[in-house]
Structure formats: structure tokens, C-alpha cells
Design a protein around this nucleic acid. Structure first.
Length: 751
DNA sequence: GGGGGCTATGGGGGG
DNA sequence: CATAGCCCCC
């Protein structure tokens, strides 16, 4: 057990205290991950079968790293260990148990976009004012209800919640909540909160005694970043370890000072009250910081001291100072971008800091743009994390939606996304008919399509659509994920549609689609390991389950040397030699929303604490007097947090005297130099001899003239009566082959 | 039914 | 500024 030699005394104690509840308070850079992994390694070395250990994290990356490091200590034995995010581990259990609680095992997972669009539809259906019922507000209200185990039924009886909603002009919120939950269930779909909520429900209802099954399965629980757990996550943990006769082998690791997810329901009370919940608790405090230099640790301590509620601890380091903290003041966000990039160049030259040891952090993802601009200009490679991830891109979501519908046709969000994409003549009004039929009869949209209640002219298109989807559903059972995906990409028409678009964006979309298919191929060919087991089933359904909870933070980013650009939130758990923290301004950091929330400033301050402690040696803070926000110039005061760090720790760099710009005061105030030209409508003059033909006269083979597109040849005519559509080939037009509704188009027949 | 252009609106962090 | 939703036209 020579690995114990690599630990300091407290770390050793935390690792070897195997039985009963354990709380590890781990300051930043105090070797938290090391303790967690060595503890698991130690459990295994002490004879605990790895499959009885469950380690829960918040990111896939943390879980993966943990497993790798455990593997390095104990070797192959580590493979059957269950380590993963709360969401992915529970999703996995729910796949097995879903039918006990009224879900299909192939349930879909709704992401935030799906949730938002479902809520938008519900609000519209209920004829509610979308200004009062802002989707995001509604969504977060529902999310927090779920995270506090308040069912729609309980919500409707809770006078306090109801009166808050009334006060906020949203008295019908409980009805929306109720409808949302039943629609999700109808669709066989779980949102992110459901993965926790339904897990709890399962353990609570305890069908076929699943509770015992999982209690005896997981004899040792470990939780990383415990300060970020919410009421619901904690409730599930307690279900698993707090019961009559339980050995209570739960070890939680966290730092109350780094709790930054209150907005998604995390409560610092979980860690503050852990002692009361588990009286036999052994607590260990890791206070030595092995990461940062003196002034960085000192600055962090000065900042966090301003918060009242916290566990007392003294974070210290024996690392000597190499450089003081820098403060850059600039006049504009643009200049901030330039100065940061300049300093990056300087650090690279002077201290030989490699790109991968440099990070630019900011409060909001929208701030990344200026840094991207200058880094690109300076030819420094960088990677932006957060924002729109690969799987959120339109073309990817479109194809994934086909996969989802093939696996689970009740998945309404996916179905609505593709029912008329690519265009197949099932327009809004038709879709409307079927959705309202579905909701009236309490069935899914897919079922209402099958019943085919309406005799619209889209009937034929619908039956073809049904045939296609059913066919996909049958075929994917016999094909592997890659074969299935390629078949669907082709037969759905998506591949063709995108191949036709040769614009720059179009080519990017083609590349993304190829990348998706390549990724699926990789999934099929390689041994993917999920929570301890090699995935044997390489079906499309399994693939979907695998990617539903992946974020771009999880992409393997090794062997590339780039500067990291990310939000402070995503930076938690990471460290860099040089950290730039940009936008240190009031209303940005702290954010203006937080300034109005109860305990908002404290949370922002913890966020600031997280940011500071990412740096090993070089920390640079910056702020701009003015910046563009939502297309307007705004002026901000320097962040209050800057005053919380004492002057002796900071070097202040005032902007060098401004190179005079020949910009009038007027235009500087207006901000935007590019005056937008109002677009004028294209006018078409009608030639004297133009005689439009009646729709029924148009037939294949005729030469025609169109007012806008000029001369063309009719290739075919389809549809009947009212809805005749001609496919016409026009010479020398951007998209020469066009489909034109004869009802509207004015065409002259030429001889 | 489909597409283009204009207008109104939101606006943070993430699994 | 980005995007959703609406209106208009063919």
C-alpha cells in the first residue's frame, strides 16, 4: 500500500477511514480528487468488491478521470466499479426499472430545448399570455418544484407556492406544471430533473423491492462536489444509505465555499447539516493548497471571508510568490480583448507558458467573442467551451430527432421537429389538427397520426411518413447503430438536403453530419465502458442513451495545445498556470440578476473564489468601462469584488494613454458605426405582353415564363385541384429547379 | 403550404 | 445581438 506514502496526514486519514459516514471538506487545490481516488483504490485493496462501490460526480469528465486514476493504482479490477454522473447512473438504472413506474425502457431524454418548446406549446394551448408566462421562468419554477419533490398534486395544494405565483401574475402555473408532467409521461420522455425525480419515485414506491436490490448492490457510496447536490439528490442518497441496520458507508467530498449551483437547486445546507443527519460522522479538513502561490491563496481567503455562513477553515500554501495579481483596466471590451491577448503573448514569450496552461474565464458565455477575435488574429490556437455544443446544432439535432422517433415514436418533441423536415407537405395547419386531436383524446401525436382522424389533403404525405418511421423502427432492431444511422440519414432525405447546400455554412453542416456518423462508427467499433460494464449492445437506441447526457466539456481534448476559453462555472475542478478573469464589472460579475436575488451576492462571491483558485501562478483580472451588450453600448462600474482584495497583492495596470481615434462623440455614443441600410422590397415590373395561364393549363413539357425567374421548362406537375405544384427548371437561377404552387404563381405559356 | 423579411423580446450559470 | 414569431406574398 505504498500509495499511502503519497498523501499527507489528513489525506491518509480520510482515505483509510473506511467504515461509516465520512465528510471531507476539501479546499481548492487540496488534493480532493487524489483523496477520492485513493480512497476507492484503498477500498478495493481492502477487499471490497469493486461492483459494490458507487461513485457519483457532476461531470462525465470527473468520473472518467477518477476511473483512470483508480485503474492506475489497482489495475484491471477497477473496471466493474460504478462511477458516473448522478444523471447518467440513474438513467442507467431507470432503463432497467422504468416499466415499474410507467415508463418504457427506451424512454427519451428531453434536453432543455425540448422542455422549452413543449412548455411554449402548452402555454399557447392554454391561451395564456406568453409575456406573463415567460418560458424560462416557468421552466425554472417547475424544475425547482421537482428538485424539492413537490409533485403537481402537492403544488396545487401548496398555498404558499400558489400565492407566489399569483403575485407574479402566473396563477395558472400549477396547471402548466401538471400538463407538462403528463405530456412528458405521454411521450415516454424524461427531462433532466426527471432522471433524479423518477429515480426517487422508484425507490419510494419500491416495486418488487428494488430498494433492497440497490441498497445491497451499493455498499459503499462516494459523492464528489457534495456542495452542489440539491434536496432531491440528497434524498436519493439518504434512501440508499439511511435505513435501519445500514452500515452508512457514505463518503461525501466537497467545499461549501465552492457552492455555485444554487440556481439549479443546490443547497449548501446539505453540507452544513450533514453532521446532524449522520451523527457518527468522521470529518476531515484538507486545508493545505498544493496548487497556487501565496498571493493567490491569500486573495482567495480575503474574498471568501466576506461571506457569513461557512465552515471554518484556513487554506494555506507553502508555495512562494512568483508574481503578483495583475489588474487590467480598459476603456472598452474590445480593448480588453486585445490587452488580454497581448499579455498571453507576453507570458508565452517570457515564461514559456504553453497554450494548454492558459485559460480565459468569464461570467457569461457571450463574452468569449472578443477573445476569440484577438487570439485568432494573433494565431494562437484556442478552444471555446460551453455555448452551443455539438449535439445542439440544428443539423445534428434534426438527425438525432429521427433516431429518437425511430426508437420511441411517442417522443413528441422529436416528432414535431421532423414531421415536416425535410418538407413533405405536412404544414402547420395539418400538424395543428393532429396535435389537438391527440390532446383531446389523451393519446400521443404519433397515435393520432395512426388513427388518421382528419381527411386533409396531407393524408398521403402522412401515410408515407408513418410508413417511413415504422420502417425505421423495424430496421434499427437488426442493424448496428452506424448502419442504422446511415440508412436514416439517407432515407429521411436529410443527407441529400444538406448536400445540396453549398454555402459556407452548408459545408460546415455537411462536415458536422459526417462527424456525427463517424462518431457513431467509433461507438460501434470501440469498447465503450459505461459505469463499469462494456457496452455489448451497439444498437441505435443504446447510442442515443449514451450521448443524451454528454456535453462538450466531455470531449477528449488532449494532445492539442490550445488556450481554454470558458465560463467560470465550467472551470470548476480545473487548474492552469495562467488564468485571465475578464469582465470584472458590476452587473456582469456580480451579474445583475444575482444583485436582486436573496443571497445572490454571496453565491457570486463563491463563484469569484472558484475563479481565483483556478490559477497556479499567474492571475490576471480585467475590466472594461464600456462594452457592447445586446447591441448597445453600456457603461459599468468596476466590480465590488475587486475592492475585497488588498492592494498589496495587486499590480494595477492602467490603460496606456489612448491612441486618439477620429471618432466623433456622436457616433461613439451611438456605438455602431455601420448604419444599417433599410432593405427595399424587390419590385418586379410586369411586361406588357404578359398573359398568365390558368393553373389547369400548365403541364409537363411546356415552356413557361415566370415574372421573377424568367423562362423555364415544366418538368412535372403533381397534386390535384387546389394544390397543384409544378416542378420547373429555370435557366441561370440560383436554385434552378423550383417547385411552384400553381394556385399563386403567375406563369405564361410560351410556344 | 412555404419562404422571406420585419418586429418584438429576452437578456446567466448547466446536467 | 440572436432568435422566435408574425405577416405578407407567391
Amino acid at each position: 500500500m505504498d500509495y499511502l506514502q503519497q498523501l499527507n496526514e489528513v489525506q491518509q486519514q480520510a482515505v483509510t477511514c473506511i467504515d461509516g459516514p465520512v465528510l471531507v471538506i476539501a479546499g481548492p487545490g487540496s488534493g480532493k480528487t487524489r483523496v477520492l481516488t485513493f480512497r476507492i483504490a484503498h477500498l478495493i485493496e481492502s477487499g471490497v468488491p469493486p461492483h459494490q462501490i458507487l461513485a457519483l460526480t457532476f461531470t462525465n469528465k470527473a468520473a472518467r478521470e477518477m476511473k483512470e486514476r483508480i485503474g492506475a493504482v489497482v489495475g484491471d479490477k477497477a473496471r466493474t466499479l460504478w462511477a458516473g454522473t448522478f444523471h447518467s447512473i440513474f438513467a442507467r438504472i431507470l432503463r432497467v426499472e422504468a416499466e415499474h413506474i410507467g415508463y418504457p425502457s427506451n424512454f427519451s431524454i428531453y434536453d432543455t430545448t425540448d422542455t422549452r418548446s413543449l412548455l411554449t406549446r402548452i402555454i399557447k394551448q392554454m391561451n395564456l399570455d406568453k409575456n406573463n408566462y415567460a418560458v424560462n421562468a416557468v421552466r425554472s419554477r417547475i424544475s425547482s418544484a421537482k428538485s424539492n419533490l413537490i409533485t403537481p398534486k402537492l403544488y396545487a395544494q401548496d398555498q404558499e407556492l400558489l400565492s407566489i405565483d399569483k403575485l407574479q401574475q402566473r396563477p395558472a402555473l400549477y396547471k402548466i406544471y401538471n400538463r407538462y408532467v403528463s405530456q412528458c409521461k405521454q411521450a415516454g420522455a424524461m427531462d433532466f430533473d426527471d432522471l433524479l425525480y423518477r429515480m426517487f419515485e422508484l425507490l419510494q414506491k419500491n416495486p418488487e423491492n428494488v430498494l433492497d436490490k440497490y441498497r445491497s448492490r451499493f455498499k459503499y457510496l462516494l459523492v464528489d462536489e457534495f456542495q452542489d447536490t440539491n434536496f432531491l439528490q440528497y434524498a436519493i442518497l439518504k434512501k440508499l444509505v439511511k435505513y435501519e441496520g445500514s452500515p452508512q458507508n457514505i463518503c461525501v467530498v466537497g467545499d461549501d465555499a465552492q457552492s455555485i449551483y444554487a440556481f439549479r437547486g443546490a443547497t449548501i445546507d446539505n453540507i452544513l447539516n450533514f453532521q446532524e443527519e449522520f451523527p457518527g460522522l468522521n470529518t476531515f479538513k484538507l486545508e493545505q493548497n498544493y496548487r497556487s502561490t501565496q498571493s493567490i491563496v491569500e486573495a482567495a481567503n480575503q474574498v471568501i471571508r466576506q461571506n457569513s455562513r461557512q465552515i471554518q477553515k484556513k487554506i494555506w500554501t507553502d508555495k512562494a510568490d512568483t508574481s503578483r495579481i495583475k489588474l487590467i483596466k480598459t476603456l472598452s471590451d474590445n480593448e480588453e480583448g486585445k490587452r488580454v491577448a497581448d499579455l498571453i503573448v507576453e507570458y508565452k514569450n517570457r515564461f514559456h507558458v504553453p497554450n494548454h496552461e492558459i485559460a480565459v474565464l468569464y461570467r457569461t458565455n457571450a463574452q468569449s467573442r472578443v477573445f476569440e477575435e484577438y487570439l485568432r488574429r494573433y494565431n494562437i490556437s484556442y478552444k471555446v467551451f460551453g455555448g452551443l455544443s455539438f449535439y445542439q446544432r440544428k443539423e445534428i439535432k434534426d438527425l438525432l430527432a429521427y433516431f429518437r422517433v425511430a426508437v420511441n415514436p411517442r417522443d413528441e418533441e422529436a416528432l414535431l421537429r421532423i414531421i415536416n423536415y425535410p418538407k413533405r407537405g405536412i404544414g402547420n395547419s395539418t400538424v395543428e389538427v393532429y396535435t389537438s386531436y391527440a390532446s383531446e383524446h389523451g393519446i400521443s401525436i404519433w397515435e393520432s397520426l395512426l388513427t388518421n382522424p382528419a381527411n386533409t389533403r396531407a393524408k398521403k404525405s402522412i401515410s408515407m411518413f408513418i410508413k417511413m418511421i415504422s420502417d425505421f423502427g423495424r430496421k434499427i432492431k437488426d442493424l448496428n447503430a452506424h448502419e442504422a444511422a446511415a440508412m436514416i440519414a439517407h432515407r429521411s432525405g436529410i443527407a441529400d438536403l444538406i448536400r445540396k447546400d453549398n454555402s459556407i455554412e452548408g459545408i460546415a453542416r455537411q462536415e458536422n453530419l459526417t462527424a456525427l456518423l463517424d462518431g457513431i462508427k467509433e461507438f460501434v467499433d470501440n469498447d465503450e465502458v459505461e459505469a463499469g460494464d462494456v457496452i455489448e449492445d451497439k444498437s441505435l437506441a443504446t447510442y442515443l442513451q449514451n450521448i443524451a447526457l454528454v456535453t462538450d466539456m466531455d470531449e477528449s481534448a488532449d494532445n492539442n495545445d490550445f488556450v481554454t476559453l470558458m465560463s467560470v462555472h465550467s472551470s470548476k475542478g480545473l487548474e492552469f498556470d495562467a488564468v485571465f478573469l475578464a469582465g470584472m464589472e458590476e452587473k456582469i460579475f456580480p451579474s445583475f440578476q444575482a444583485m436582486e436575488e436573496k443571497d445572490g451576492i454571496d453565491e457570486e462571491r463563491r463563484l469569484f473564489y472558484v475563479a481565483i483558485t483556478r490559477a497556479r501562478k499567474l492571475l490576471t483580472l480585467s475590466f472594461a468601462n464600456s462594452r457592447y451588450r445586446y447591441g448597445k453600448v453600456v457603461y459599468h462600474q468596476p466590480s465590488r469584488f475587486l475592492t475585497e482584495i488588498s492592494d498589496d497583492l495587486m499590480d494595477s495596470q492602467i490603460t496606456p494613454r489612448k491612441p486618439v481615434e477620429a471618432v466623433s462623440r456622436q457616433s461613439r455614443l451611438q456605438g455602431n458605426f455601420k448604419q444599417r441600410q433599410p432593405k427595399t422590397r424587390e419590385t418586379i415590373s410586369v411586361p406588357q405582353d404578359f398573359v398568365p395561364a390558368a393553373p389547369h393549363e400548365i403541364a409537363a413539357g411546356l415552356k413557361v415564363r415566370h415574372l421573377k425567374f424568367g423562362e423555364g421548362k415544366v418538368l412535372s406537375v403533381d397534386g390535384s385541384n387546389d394544390s397543384k405544384v409544378a416542378t420547373i427548371f429555370f435557366q441561370g437561377v440560383h436554385n434552378p429547379q423550383r417547385r411552384i404552387m400553381l394556385k399563386f404563381a403567375k406563369l405564361q405559356i410560351l410556344d
